[in-house]
Design a protein around this nucleic acid. Sequence first.
DNA 1: GCCTAATTCAAAC
DNA 2: GTTTGAATTAGGC
Length: 244
Amino acid sequence: MPRPSRESYGDQKPPYSYISLTAMAIWSSPEKMLPLSEIYRFITDRFPYYRRNTQRWQNSLRHNLSFNDCFIKIPRRPDRPGKGAYWALHPAAFDMFENGSLLRRRKRFKLLKNDKEVLDNELAALANINRFFFSPTENQIEPATFAPTPRPPSPSPVTTEPITNIRPKRSFTIESLISPDKPAEPNTQEAPAPALMQWGLAPYCDLALGQPMLIPPMTYYNHHYVIPPAEELLRVPQLALRSV
DNA sequence: GCCTAATTCAAAC
DNA sequence: GTTTGAATTAGGC
């Protein structure tokens, strides 16, 4: 007897936008980030409808990834060969689909210009750190490269609330989204950690080195990303060079 | 019906 | 693979 669940939409178009589908794929991954090819795979595995006309919907999905600030492009580590970058969810985008609205959001998630610049700065720093870790001959860091992002001026209790407090308004599981006809299991799990906590500098270094966390993670204050001061970062490369 | 998010097509990089 | 723009479709109020 065929199992219900995953493919319960059969060949029908699932009632999810590309943004929802992409978010589901990213959420369901252990690292909370996926390359484009894995996002495609997640969708075609679960929704037979998308096994046809792949060129059309995949182009649309790519458009969404670039166009929407809720998706963050994370540089691929050189020791993980493959095409393209990884895609993650912006941690502040978690309540995008509140009230179970997976078709059309009330409002588009759009970063303010300054927030976008700060984020771009962080990602550029990450890419440079990445290069450094995997390039033993490149043994010095240009000071400007690692200039820390200015911390929020005199952060108040309100503006220093860590990102870890951001949780989906309503807890749910990926399975319950995919198979709405099947009663959702009680969700005893913690909501997924926000994407930035997953790929912040510390876990990133941890992955690269296979060693305990050695530098403070990138932190996120309400609309502000803060990477560790340059002097803290500079302690890491020797360790990196030893183990890579 | 209006507003705007989502989708589509496609060019340029 | 990524970004962007323009045109069109369609959801939600």
